[in-house]
Design a protein around this nucleic acid. Structure first.
Lengths: 232, 232
DNA sequence: CCAATAGTTCGGTCACGGCCGAATTATCAT
DNA sequence: ATGATAATTCGGCCGTGACCGAACTATTGG
């Protein structure tokens, strides 16, 4: 097995948006099911299966079968290190791998957190509910939403980078993402990420140092009232 | 400017074989002209120019104009670090950045060295000359070679991974590479890399710790006699 | 001034690879 | 047994992006 260009092969694996999303989820150090990984990547199970097989082949991931699930995790700390150093180049902050098993009970986490790169928890639901209630978002197919004309205007007024979100490769634009604490779908996909970005950029929300918990700032509370007519 | 998926964007830049080849050349810490970079990547100047512009845009590279040349180098140590950690994943060894300016005079270097990933110097020329002398390689176009049927058989007998080399994306298969010490073209491209790989794998040659110098082993000398009917 | 060289921009071609639908296998639940 | 869920393989579609030829600009040197 000759390695004509080893660097490009590994980098190309990480260079696909869907695979990168999966890898970033696995940066928490835990093992995730193929379904979960397909979900954060915004692709179908078949597509995800192909991606995962390739990454296992390249020794980026380790797979473990358990019942009818297969769990995937990063193959080694070196993989995590490489991903971190790449994210550092892009000015992103990688959340260090912490093995807090009790994270499911955290009330702050249930209130507001990131689900990979978009908002989840009560705040994520408030945003999603407000968008659907005002007719900005309409269900489309089984797992997507369509952004209506009024939704487009609303996002522009809010300062959401719609162009950037639409350029996000073949990633789903407005995906339904099942919220594990609320048990209902919130907005994810490229649009969900762009909205979350707006929250952070305007200082409405702040990521806490570790983990996925997000703190809603005072101006964030006011924004929820004025833009999403909800009080939390 | 929203970063919907920062990781994949950086990784995708490094994930192209041509760009990866350029980056690996720049891992020596020096600045290189656009022509040189096009050359090791095995692409035309236009294509290289586009690649370089994109990498400068993404702050992976820094460019400096000097006369009618433009010199490109890695933008920071962080970039080098990220590349190293990726190469480590693939089991490759990154050659540490040494600034030996006197490398042009080194007689060992003139005798045998790697030119990015293929053999250069007298040994590289011996191999190339032998292949052309026996009709295994024929000039094709201005800067390429064609591997003849007899060349194909010869490579198979030698244990060169032709299939692997042919899969190397859009990289040129058998490129002519101007040898700076011999002033004649030697074999490069995917085939040149595969041949060099064979030399290393069979123990005919060994990379020295630092720099590009390659040591021809005793069995390597014998192999040059038996397979390439040349004594050095 | 003219020829040669380095580099870039533009336009058009083409193939690789990501994507999904459909079908298949395996496990779990009733 | 029967149906539901998790995961995979296969086949075919299609868009992104890498590539090159041609034309253009800038610098150097005779």
């Amino acid at each position: 097995m000759i390695t004509v260009n080893a660097l490009s092969e590994v980098a190309a694996l990480m260079g696909d948006p869907a695979r990168a999303a999966m890898l970033q989820l696995m940066m928490d150090g835990r093992a995730h099911t193929a379904s979960d990984l397909a979900h954060v990547a915004g692709v179908t199970a078949q597509t995800a299966s192909g991606h995962l097989a390739r990454m296992v082949d390249a020794n980026l991931l380790a797979a473990r079968a358990q019942g009818r699930n297969r769990f995937y995790r990063l193959a080694s700390g070196e993989v995590a290190h490489a991903i971190e150093s790449l994210m550092a180049l892009a000015g992103e902050r990688a959340q260090p791998a912490s093995k807090t098993a009790a994270w499911r009970r955290d009330p702050d986490l249930r209130f507001c957190r990131t689900c990979y790169d978009h908002l989840a928890g009560q705040v994520g639901m408030v945003v999603t509910d407000s968008l659907t209630r005002h007719g900005h978002l309409e269900p489309k197919g089984a797992r997507d939403w369509a952004l209506t004309r009024s939704g487009e205007l609303f996002c522009q007024r809010l300062g959401v980078d719609l162009d950037g979100a639409r350029q996000a490769g073949t990633r789903h634009f407005a995906r339904q993402c099942l919220d594990w604490s609320e048990r209902r779908p919130h907005i994810s996909g490229a649009l969900g990420a762009a909205i979350a970005d707006t929250f952070f950029k305007k200082g409405w929300a702040e990521r806490l140092r570790r983990g996925r918990t997000v703190r809603l700032t005072d101006s964030g509370r006011r924004a929820l009232g004025s833009h999403f007519d909800t009080s939390v």
